[in-house]
């Protein structure tokens, strides 16, 4: 086992450091609890700008909770969150959040274009009419996810992969700098996964930052630049090449990953 592992939770260099104003998402001492059980305990994280970062950990490790707490969707016990150095409330226009597909009722009476236009709410407000330019922007977002023919389709008629693409189009319509995605590849077809990853890499090429909760360890090295390993506490953080190691995974997952699985991953990483 390599002993050069950087373990944030064991008192790494960043603990106690102030927030990094260049980071699109910087957490300091983030603690969240459901009832009396901590879901996240004193988590520090500094996601790099202009990169694709994966949040990885076993089921129940607090991955989705981390995103929700960071964006202020659920109450936190303590901790500080900054987005590009600002408090989250002041940076809402720079964040596009893609929730888990299964978190909404797809039988809701609305159309694809309506959902994408929800991404323009902060510009439209209560009363402003949806101008031709706003509509064009939403249609363009749909085209970028390969759904241009589906604008007036009822959302209940979409497949899982199409639903995920619509959610992504809504995020694109927000025209943000930071894209935060909760399990974007869960239950989607291979073609959609390919389309989404190409799109996210395109965003990165434009200098945008992407942070995604990810659970397929086999694709981490191919998709992401940066990993953040979490299991209630922050376990490790850094570039994929140096941080996504069998030792760090073993530590994060405890006994929950079979040794053979770890060996295969070690091969994938190299």
């Amino acid at each position: 086992m390599p002993s050069t592992l950087t373990l944030a939770a064991s008192g790494g260099a960043q603990t106690g450091a102030g927030p990094d104003p260049a980071s699109p998402l910087c957490l300091r001492g983030l603690t969240v609890s459901y009832g009396d059980k901590p879901a996240l305990f004193s988590v520090d994280a500094t996601f790099p700008a202009g990169a694709m970062s994966a949040i990885i950990g076993p089921n129940g490790a607090g991955k989705s909770t981390l995103l929700k707490a960071a964006l202020g969707l659920i109450p936190t016990v303590s901790g500080q969150v900054t987005v590009y150095g600002q408090p989250v409330a002041a940076a809402r226009d720079r964040i596009a959040y893609v929730p888990q597909r299964a978190s909404v009722d797809w039988d809701f009476p609305t159309t694809v274009i309506d959902v994408v236009l929800m991404g323009r709410y902060r510009k439209l407000g209560l009363f402003r009419r949806v101008s031709r330019a706003e509509r064009a922007l939403a249609l363009d977002a749909l085209a970028r996810v390969g759904m241009e023919g589906f604008a007036d389709r009822q959302i209940g008629q979409l497949s899982g992969g199409q639903q995920q693409r619509v959610f992504l189009a809504r995020a694109l319509a927000q025209d943000a700098d930071l894209y935060v995605l909760d399990e974007p590849f869960a239950g989607v077809d291979a073609a959609t996964e390919r389309a989404i990853i190409d799109l996210l890499k395109g965003l990165k090429a434009q200098g945008k930052s992407v942070i995604a909760v990810h659970h397929d360890l086999a694709t981490v090295a191919g998709y992401f630049d940066h990993v953040f390993l979490v299991n209630v506490r922050a376990m490790a953080e850094g570039p994929v090449e140096t941080t996504f190691t069998p030792a760090a995974l073993a530590q994060t997952y405890g006994g929950r990953l079979a040794a053979t699985h770890l060996d295969q991953l070690a091969l994938t990483v190299r």
Partner: peptide, 22 residues
């Protein structure tokens, strides 16, 4: 009528509605 958009948005997708500050 006045609160149509926030009502619709927060009814459909609560998480997203919170994320954009509703």
């Amino acid at each position: 009528l006045i609160f149509w958009r926030p009502l619709k948005l927060s009814t459909f997708d609560e998480g997203f509605a919170r994320a954009i500050g509703l």
